[in-house]
Design a protein around this nucleic acid. Structure first.
Lengths: 201, 201
DNA sequence: GTCTATATTGGGATAGAC
DNA sequence: GTCTATCCCAATATAGAC
């Protein structure tokens, strides 16, 4: 009989070294950006050594950044899925989402914005891997919203278009809220997105 | 009679050294972010010396970054004013705006996003000056949109709220378009914002 | 897989001549 | 105001013992 040491509580610090590094990288890049986050800082805060970081990510900082973006992708995708499944009405789900994003921002003293956006800004010519991982994240999130809209009765084309706007507006509102240190952009955009979803045929 | 050497064509490279430095800093930080842009690179591309940079910006990189954000602020404020003044219908103006943003992105091969957003991401604990300059930029842009909406007949409260959503959604759509290397987010968000402005009361 | 030491490059910033 | 030389430090990345 095989024991399965991989099955551990996600919240304990009894995580594998690789997971600890990825999560720490994602959190730090969320707050400081890709360029502003050093590998040594990641190693120290993840309680790993520099050798371990390069053991798991031989591609160096770019490979680690790509993994961090993918982690942020899955993180928000989970929130999206959970919220869209819990609420029958997509408009209501959007209001819940803006509320959760606002809560996360305020509770972190306006430090924790979108982990994907923060990590991808300022990485244009270098590292196509990070850019692509970010594009895949946005596409996945749009797909989740579009699916929920279809389930709620929207035509496929409308659902696809509205998903663009929902994800884009959430992104922008979170950025505006973070910069302005106020939840008002998120709350207002949430109300207007709900209005849009309810009046769009 | 006094000659006025300050009055020069804005496009010639016969600009003052300080202006050349600020514009170069803004353009580079727009593409590479604040942390990813070095003072030496700014000096070189602005055809100035390191000594000149520190002469005009004794506060170093943070002071220069703040000036760069303010420059980006005024740059987009000019576009906003011009577009909102040229179109009577705010909904039409928004469609023109998304078109111009899309054009700028595509023409730069998806390199030139929002200069304020790019420069401010990843500068949380350090440099409150940059953060504040970015907050002031967003507030100014919202004010311009709100004023135009009031002129078009919206109630003041509605105008203020809708301005939050217009600016936030434009920010998010530009980011989504840049990451996805597609104008579709901007075009779609433009249509939905126009719909929102036309159906909101 | 983990750890330490180190090579190497480039960063921000300063000094002082002109 | 402009320019060059330089200091100091942090960054990424590597080597090799354990």
């Amino acid at each position: 009989m095989k024991t399965k040491p991989e099955q551990q509580q996600p919240h304990a610090d009894a995580l594998g070294t690789r997971e600890r590094i990825v999560r720490t990288a994602s959190r730090l890049m969320q707050r400081q950006g890709y360029q502003g986050t050093g590998i040594k800082q990641i190693a120290k805060e993840a309680e790993a050594t520099l050798g371990s970081v390069y053991h798991f990510f031989p591609g160096g900082k770019q490979e680690l950044g790509t993994a961090a973006v993918r982690h942020g992708d899955e993180e928000f995708a989970d929130i999206l899925r959970r919220t869209l499944d819990a609420e029958e009405d997509p408009a209501t789900a959007v209001l819940v989402l803006t509320g959760e994003l606002a809560e996360g921002l305020r509770d972190s003293d306006w430090l924790d914005g979108c982990p994907v956006t923060s990590a991808v800004v300022g990485t244009a010519p270098d590292s196509p891997g990070i850019q692509q991982a970010a594009a895949e994240a946005f596409a996945r999130w749009r797909g989740l919203v579009a699916d929920a809209l279809v389930r709620a009765g929207f035509a496929e084309g409308d659902a696809r278009d509205l998903a663009y706007t929902v994800i884009s507006a959430l992104e922008g509102a979170e950025m505006a809220a973070q910069v302005g240190r106020s939840v008002e952009p998120l709350e207002t955009v949430g109300r207007h997105l709900a209005h849009l979803l309810r009046t769009y045929r």
